[in-house]
Write a protein that binds this DNA or RNA. Structure first.
Length: 494
RNA sequence: GCCCCCAUCGUCUAGUGGCCCAGGACGGAGCCCUCUCAAGGCUCAAACAGGGGUUCGAGUCCCCUUGGGGGCACCA
């Protein structure tokens, strides 16, 4: 595989929330960089001041950190090729735009938005295949154009796209992408506000920052020929291009819409990384999940970040769109939870329990964690599975204290007998409590299901819980017996 | 409308001309284990979009159709 250190970059614009697609691009960027001993860079593409969303930058960086994909170079951490925020690099773009104009590969355009609008309408009325700039300013005398620029006339800089021939751009996954130049346009490189468009800014920055591999969404495929033409006009070396496909909604029909996003949230899921933590997902699970949407590993498997780095191969990325499957998220999250050492898991569970209002002491939490580990899909599942350990009393539903096929009287008798057996025991370890209780079940001609079911409700207050005897051990003799006593009283009053 | 991309089980995918009457994972069904719920083990159902080529031989190469996706801004 490729041993040359790769410099990769993730270049989001702070115009919205950080979602799964961005996270996946970041992951692949990160994996490639780590795999080859290179660097992963975060660059903020904030050249569209109209769409700038306050707080978006913070969310991007917070999400990356949470996932464990902290960039080696970024606006926050700096680096040798900064600044890493495009609005802080204006002079650089100006310089390169000038270079292109001097080379004759770009030109100033003085057309007003109104004139362009009118031009577009006319072309649409003529039903042309492709609405494109008519080249009015392209035909201007360069010296005259330069004079008008110097005099301060408002203008943009356009790229001079060849009118004929084809552009061949190469994508690592998709091969050569051939486009007839007549379908291309004289795209704007520099806006009249003095800021560059993505097309110029990204190419300049990737070159300046020595990016070797560009991984980006397939929405860039249509302007891909423009980008390689810009690079070639400069005479620069091209990076390796990889256009990743988009994520589709779970049904596989189209992209996630606002409506789908809301629905996902209602179901306890989200496509935004920043929501994942509070939903009880852990970064290991999320990472494993998104890694496999668009990466064909021979054996689908549960992998840590380290294992992903080891197995990553940029050539095994897939070009086809992938439908989001939240059930798979649950699967990977549960799998990674089961992989966590007790202490680590306990630490992560604690805030969920605390936020739910339980007074959590670490000693009990450490004993409880192994009991609930394989039952958790998300961390907040700890609330129903472990909440009763931290309560003084439980409130069993009277009807649930009666086992199937029995009445209140019989159930009360069972709890009384159990109480006597347990109270007489020297300790409350499950090794001590379970055998005599099983013997009792046998003697009484009952089933374990009936007896343990009643006791479970009496002791935990719920029908579903971790194993009974282990649970009683953690709860302790005193509290367990008190809860049994309370259950007897409830049953007797029925 | 025009341009571009994509196409294997419901979903994510393995497969780079013979090893494939297509393998794995999620989900589904069943069985085992079992004090509930899980976890775990075993088994089953489930796909090469359609049509033409090329070839001794095609899921794998080419073309068309169909379907899906993306794009046609002084947004990224």
């Amino acid at each position: 595989m490729n041993h040359k250190p790769a410099r990769t970059r993730m270049a989001p614009s702070p115009t919205g929330r950080f979602h799964l697609g961005s996270a996946r691009t970041a992951l692949y960027d990160f994996l490639l960089a780590r795999k080859t001993g290179g660097q992963f860079i975060l660059r903020l593409e904030d050249t569209d001041q109209k769409r700038y969303v306050p707080g978006a930058e913070e969310e991007i960086m917070r999400s990356l950190d949470w996932l464990g994909l902290t960039p080696d170079e970024s606006p926050l951490h700096g680096g040798p090729y900064g600044p890493y925020r495009q609005t802080e690099r204006r002079e650089i773009y100006h310089h390169y735009a000038k270079v292109l104009v001097e080379k004759g590969a770009a030109y100033p355009c003085f057309c007003t938005p109104e004139r362009l609008e009118q031009m577009r309408k006319e072309q649409e009325a003529r039903k042309v295949d492709k609405v494109r700039y008519d080249g009015t300013c392209r035909r201007l005398d360069p010296d005259e154009a330069a004079r008008r620029v110097a005099s301060g006339e408002k203008h943009v800089i356009r790229f001079k796209m060849p009118y004929e021939g084809v552009t061949i751009a190469h994508d690592l996954l998709r091969g050569d992408i051939v486009t007839e130049n007549k379908y291309l346009d004289d795209y704007v490189l520099m806006k009249s506000d003095g800021l560059p468009t993505y097309h110029l800014a990204a190419m300049v920055d990737d070159h300046e920052m020595k990016i070797t591999h560009v991984l980006r969404g397939s929405e860039w495929l249509s302007t891909f020929p423009l980008h390689v033409n810009i690079i070639r006009a400069f005479g620069w070396e091209e990076p390796v291009w990889v256009h990743l496909s988009v994520f589709l909604k779970p049904s596989g029909k189209g992209k996630m819409s606002k409506r789908d996003t809301t629905q996902a949230l209602k179901d306890g899921y989200s496509i935004f990384v920043d929501d994942m933590k509070s939903l009880g997902y852990i970064p290991e699970g999320v990472l494993n999940w998104i890694a496999l949407m668009g990466w064909g590993v021979p054996e689908d498997d549960v992998m840590t970040l380290e294992q992903m780095i080891e197995r990553f191969d940029i050539r095994s990325l897939t070009p086809s769109p992938a439908a989001i499957n939240f059930q798979k998220l649950d699967h990977f999250n549960g799998a990674h939870i089961r992989l966590l050492p007790t202490e680590d898991l306990a630490r992560r569970i604690k805030p969920f329990l605390t936020d739910a209002g339980f007074a959590v002491d670490d000693e009990t939490l450490f004993k409880v964690t192994p009991l609930i580990r394989e039952r958790l899909v998300t961390l907040d599942d700890a609330i129903p599975f472990a909440g009763f350990f931290f309560k003084q009393d439980v409130e069993p539903k009277p009807e649930e204290l009666i086992a199937k096929g029995l009445d209140a009287k019989q159930s009360a008798e069972i709890v009384r007998s159990s109480y006597q057996i347990l109270a007489a025991l020297p300790d409350f370890s499950h090794q001590t409590t379970e055998p005599p209780m099983r013997a009792y079940v046998e003697r009484a001609g009952l089933t374990a299901n009936q007896v343990f079911g009643i006791l479970r409700v009496a002791v935990t207050g719920q029908k579903v819980s971790p194993p009974l005897f282990e649970s009683m051990e953690v709860i302790g003799r005193e509290k367990t017996l008190a809860r049994l006593q309370k259950a007897i009283e409830i049953l007797e009053s029925m």
